[in-house]
Design a binder for these strands. Structure first.
Length: 321
DNA sequence: CGTCCAAAGCGTCAAATAAA
DNA sequence: TTTATTTGACGCTTTGGACG
């Protein structure tokens, strides 16, 4: 009777967790070893969670149990905890500020998910640099056979051919006329000095052909008139940001070069932030999924415990009669 | 088929926080 | 202290479904 209940609890927890995992590509954080906590429902909508190290936190609004839990189990419930939402209202500030205060106190998704995955090597760490640009795609129309094809996050295709030619294809980017020179500081390649990239317009289409000295790999490009790129050495996974040293075609005066420098820095900053925002949203979605999984697990757990309690009450009342 | 609307996504800014 | 990173907020665009 009671054993069936607990086994059902285990299986339901497992089912719920694996159901959620299907949504994650690289493995769910919820598959990580759980943090040992004890849970007590203090007030409706607020759950007080005692961590194993004695720290007490409040989790708000995860479970809205219709009944108050009355089970005083001798054994500590083990659940996984994803985050702590510390919600201290302060009437002395404006609503916007208050909201911002609350939200800004929230730990980063990166930290939360890293905590969840810290004990499970199968779960990839969040801060690991993703190399999704290195997913090969079908070879495009190129005169020489490309040895590597990369897709940037902006949808551009970069093909590196055997002859050290880098072809950048993007429907949205106009071809730059003339040659572009990019300087690379502290190149990891054996080649001394700066790497030179030349960009020549392809008359037939909007693609660009880059010739690179030193065998480095262009791995990322941004859309826009003044893109920023990353170079990666073939024998090193360490990417380095590079910048356009000259705008296409024209030599410039120092003042306009300064303006160009400012514009370029801004472009690089915007591109970085763009990528960061994208990544942040991805983390947030993952985090929300993780919480939803946890809600499902805890709801199942609550339901099972309520049923168990009811059964025990029945037995007790039967004996008393 | 065109219009409306809600949801989702994206880029940017700004503030908070972390790291150097 | 300075610089880099993270993330909420805001406005805009895109997308998909409902409706006439």
């Amino acid at each position: 009777m009671d054993t069936s209940g607990s086994s059902q609890l285990d299986s339901s927890l497992q089912d719920s967790a694996t159901d959620g995992e299907e949504n994650h590509s690289g493995g769910s954080p919820s598959s990580a070893a759980p943090t040992q906590v004890s849970v007590a429902a203090e007030s409706p909508g607020v759950t007080v969670v005692q961590l194993s190290d004695g720290q007490t936190v409040q989790v708000q609004g995860v479970i809205q149990a219709p009944q108050t839990s009355v089970i005083q189990s001798p054994q500590v419930q083990t659940v996984q905890i994803a985050t702590v939402a510390e919600l201290d209202d302060d009437e002395s500030v404006t609503d916007t500020h208050k909201r911002r205060e609350i939200l800004s106190r929230r730990p980063s998704y990166r930290k939360i998910l890293n905590e969840l995955s810290s004990d499970s090597p199968a779960v990839p760490k969040i801060d690991e640099e993703k190399t999704e640009e290195e997913v090969p795609v079908s070879s495009e129309a190129s005169a020489s056979v490309p040895t590597s094809i990369y897709q940037t996050s902006t949808g551009q295709y970069i093909a590196i051919t055997q002859g050290r030619a880098i072809q950048l294809s993007s429907p949205g980017v106009e071809a730059h006329l003339g040659a572009q020179t990019m300087t690379v500081a502290s190149s990891p390649t054996p080649q001394p000095g700066a790497a030179i990239l030349q960009c020549a317009a392809q008359p037939g289409d909007c693609s660009q052909q880059f010739y690179i000295q030193g065998g480095q790999v262009l791995i990322q490009a941004a859309t826009g008139d003044l893109p920023a790129y990353q170079l990666r050495s073939p024998n090193s996974s360490l990417a380095q940001s590079i910048v356009m040293a000259a705008s296409p075609g024209a030599m410039q005066s120092p003042s306009s070069q300064h303006a160009e420098e400012i514009t370029r820095k801004r472009e690089v900053r915007l591109m970085k932030n763009r990528e960061a925002a994208r990544e942040c949203r991805r983390k947030k979605k993952e985090y929300v999924k993780c919480l939803e999984n946890r809600v499902a697990v805890l709801e199942n757990q609550n339901k099972t415990l309520i049923e168990e309690l009811k059964a025990l009450k029945d037995i007790y009342c039967h004996k008393a009669e």
